[in-house]
């Protein structure tokens, strides 16, 4: 986990949080936000960030589909068991296996992808220790974290206070 240097603040109100986020972004910094639930207002303020997760799901879903068709086809060809002249490699019944494995692979790898992406982002964007220990971000408070040089902390501290932050903390760990 990387070291943190910067400012973090807690907010009671969502509108003040989003205003603070927009102001910080105008200063050229991308803040991190903590919230008890996802809010589209925060996404708008942060500039609609996107995730690569759907690509992971799509790739592994495709792999599942391929496995679902090719595996039964291979086993049927490996041990040929002719029944009433019916096709050995039969597409309609294998479609069921193909469908189920598409879903299964997508589900497992979407979860793995989500965990992986979250871990990467957590390492890229370390949180200050104080914010980690603050127990109300899951409850009823919004948090804004600005990672910056020690020389800039004063500026962001004032900005956050000006936008109605309840508590503002400077941290260099």
């Amino acid at each position: 986990m990387g070291k943190f240097s910067g400012v973090w603040a807690s907010f009671e109100y969502l509108d003040e949080t989003t205003e603070a986020i927009e102001k910080i972004r105008k200063q050229g910094k991308q803040p991190q936000v903590l919230s008890p639930c996802p809010r589209h207002e925060i996404d708008h303020a942060l500039g609609e960030p996107q995730t690569r997760l759907p690509f992971i799901s799509l790739i592994f879903g495709g792999l599942g589909c391929l496995t679902g068709y090719s595996f039964p086809a291979w086993t049927a060809s490996d041990w040929v068991l002719p029944v009433s002249g019916k096709p050995i490699v039969a597409i309609p019944p294998f479609t069921i296996i193909g469908f189920e494995l598409t879903i299964l692979f997508t589900a497992i790898f979407t979860l793995a992808g989500m965990i992986g992406l979250i871990v990467i982002d957590t390492f890229r964007n370390p949180l200050p220790k104080g914010a980690k220990k603050y127990p109300r971000f899951q409850r009823d408070r919004f948090g804004v974290v600005v990672s910056c040089e020690p020389s800039q902390t004063k500026e962001f501290e004032e900005l956050l206070k000006a936008h109605g932050a309840e508590e503002v903390h400077v941290e260099n760990s």
């Binding site: 903590l34 008890p36 996802p38 997508t106 589900a107 992406l117 982002d121 957590t122």
Partner: peptide
């Protein structure tokens, strides 16, 4: 899972949730 509720976490989480909803829908019927 050491959940903190950061915007990065919510971003990936909500998308994962949507994907799960999308794949679980045909699964229910199947």
């Amino acid at each position: 899972f050491f959940w903190r509720g950061t915007n990065h976490q919510w971003l990936h989480y909500m998308r994962a949730y949507l994907i799960y909803a999308a794949i679980a829908t045909p699964l229910v019927f199947s």
